[in-house]
């Protein structure tokens, strides 16, 4: 680790920039939205974590012991019960998909966030080492471990929720009813001509409101995790020399604190998903 660190530490900016680069197909993105680029690293990590979760879930789900729950079954039962309780409390009329959606978001965000706890240089160095065996220049092998420090991941989740919000809105209010929400919300009026006057403002406000939901969700998770990752990188800048005890102490403290951030962000994301879907499922009379 020190070998690959040594030149990077001497140039902190390069070290951090190196860590913020993705292993990608199609080069690095040119614009804010560039669909010609595909980040292999975060996708692979996400797939691996999803695979682990799916595998464990499958194993537990196939061998459920109703009388004597042990080990993993206890943990998963606890999580399922917890999520189910949240869904029941916030969104009582939820259909059968809200629970699985919420638990998948909750567990996956925890798992993806938890990749932040792994020492920042461990996996990238490992990948660089493996790549160098195959003749690649280790300094040009990029690997970003934490999927949630990437906008793609957080916006994928948020976009999913956004699409479901629209789906549940149309399902509960009908397409016309959903459009009426844009015209009559948040400023309601009794007389027709006031309604007409308020309509443009309502349309603007509701569009902003609806868009703000997924964007704030995606950015909140991304911002928290990105900041956490960046702090780990800054702490890692202390290197392996005389400042190493400082790195160990600071890194430990921040990692311990970060456990809370990891869980809290996952909880918030899950909770907001349920709340937004619950609001979307209210019939138009409730508004």
């Amino acid at each position: 680790m020190s070998e690959s660190n040594a030149p990077a530490i001497s140039n902190p900016v390069e070290y951090i920039q190196h860590h913020l680069q993705n292993l990608s197909i199609g080069g690095q993105p040119e614009a804010l939205v560039d669909f010609s680029v595909f980040f292999v690293d975060i996708f692979l990590v996400t797939v691996a974590l999803a695979g682990v979760f799916a595998f464990v879930a499958y194993k537990v789900g196939q061998s459920l012991d109703p009388d004597k729950p042990t080990g993993m079954q206890n943990i998963l039962e606890m999580i399922v019960e917890f999520v189910n309780q949240q869904v029941k409390d916030i969104f009582p009329s939820a259909d059968q998909w809200v629970g699985p959606l919420a638990i998948t978001i909750f567990v996956m965000v925890i798992l993806m966030n938890a990749m932040d706890i792994i020492p920042v240089d461990l996996l990238p160095s490992l990948i660089a080492g493996i790549a160098s065996i195959f003749g690649a220049d280790p300094h040009h092998v990029y690997f970003k471990v934490v999927p949630t420090t990437n906008l793609d991941t957080t916006f994928a989740l948020a976009l999913m929720v956004f699409l479901l919000i629209m789906y549940y809105n149309i399902k509960s209010k009908g397409f016309a009813g959903y459009l009426m929400v844009f015209l009559t919300h948040p400023f309601a009026a009794e007389t027709p001509w006031v309604k007409v006057i308020l309509a443009p403002a309502n349309i603007m406000m509701t569009i902003i409101e609806e868009l703000a939901k997924p964007i704030s969700m995606g950015l909140r998770l991304f911002g928290n995790m990105f900041a956490g990752e960046l702090l780990f990188l800054l702490i890692a800048l202390l290197g392996v020399g005389w400042a190493m005890p400082g790195q160990i102490v600071l890194g430990s403290v921040w990692a311990i604190f970060h456990i809370m951030v990891v869980l809290l962000q996952a909880y918030i994301f899950m909770l907001l998903t349920i709340i937004f879907l619950g609001i979307a499922s209210q019939s138009s009379e409730d508004h």
Binding site: S24, G26, P29, A31, L32, V33, D34, F35, S36, V37, F38, F39, I42, F43, T46, P147, N150, L151, D152, T153, F155, A156, L157, L159
Partner: peptide, 9 residues
């Protein structure tokens, strides 16, 4: 950046 990874995810 937002990239094609979004769809993969």
């Amino acid at each position: 950046n937002v990239t094609a990874t979004l769809f993969g995810q």
